[in-house]
Design a protein around this nucleic acid. Structure first.
Lengths: 143, 143
DNA sequence: CTACGACCTCAAGTTAACTTGAGGTCAAGG
DNA sequence: CCTTGACCTCAAGTTAACTTGAGGTCGTAG
């Protein structure tokens, strides 16, 4: 059985490489490794080594965070991706569709809040139980 | 000098009153008092007493939080309101205009992020330094 | 008097996402 | 050999916004 792939040790990244190229701190790399968001192996000096796909993974993490998604949710979303292979374009498309839903939801919520504020500027009641601004549900108030 | 206002002790609210009527915990009332978001005085038993305007103040706090404004910023915004007088309609209008700006900003940011994600779905580059998704500035990428 | 409910203070805990600091190893270069 | 830079682990710290828990006082009702 001959493994025709390039020797991983030759292309492997150290923790400092990953940090620098991803724009995050070494401690953050440690943290993401510990939380299972990225994976590494150890060389004989017990130092972490990462395959290059980790760079793409960190990129996905950072974008998801901008969407407001928690690391735990991100970890779950990334866990279905294959390891040691750079996430493909279709992987990214599937993920970004998921996260797009979250983003649409947030935008919708903020716009609804804006509408409620506009409506409530006139009366200014702000009453608990009656004012939709105080009750993020669908209660009709200001009748 | 005759104070013609209603005796504050007769209309004063206890910490439990404020908590119940505002839908927050007693500990939160303590916390807001400690942080200077609301003010109280003590009776001879060293118990806090609040004037009724505090109910309106807590309402404003809760709405601002929904807009995503930090307590420190809320404290500053509320500090210009007169004490011991329920915030008026025009007070609420001034505040909500401020917070409306913040809300508009957030909505704009999320919509921009959504656009960037839509654009990046095609290429999936996600590169630090080139992809606007990885750089929340105005760098033009994907040229 | 006792029990209960409301109040008090002070300190520590929770949460998520990091970050810092202390104390150590290893490899390479001068 | 010493120095430097990169790595390691472990523990604690930071931030904001609460929340819990421990130990106490006071007033009222039975």
């Amino acid at each position: 059985m001959v493994d025709k792939r390039i020797d991983p040790e030759k292309t492997a990244l150290s923790v400092g490489d990953v940090a620098k190229r991803s724009g995050i701190k070494v401690s953050t790399v440690h943290y993401y490794d510990a939380e299972g968001l990225i994976t590494s192996w150890r060389n004989h000096g017990n130092q972490r080594r990462f395959s290059r796909d980790v760079l793409r993974r960190v990129a996905l993490i950072k974008i998801a965070q901008r969407v407001g998604i928690s690391l735990e949710e991100i970890r779950q979303a990334l866990s279905v991706l294959p390891h040691h292979r750079t996430p493909s374009k279709s992987d990214w498309q599937a993920l970004s569709n998921q996260w797009r839903i979250s983003l649409d939801d947030q935008i919708g919520r903020l716009m609804k809040l804006r509408n409620q504020m506009d409506e409530c500027i006139g009366c200014g009641c702000l009453s608990l139980g009656q004012c939709p601004l105080r009750n993020p549900g669908d209660i009709q108030a200001h009748d």
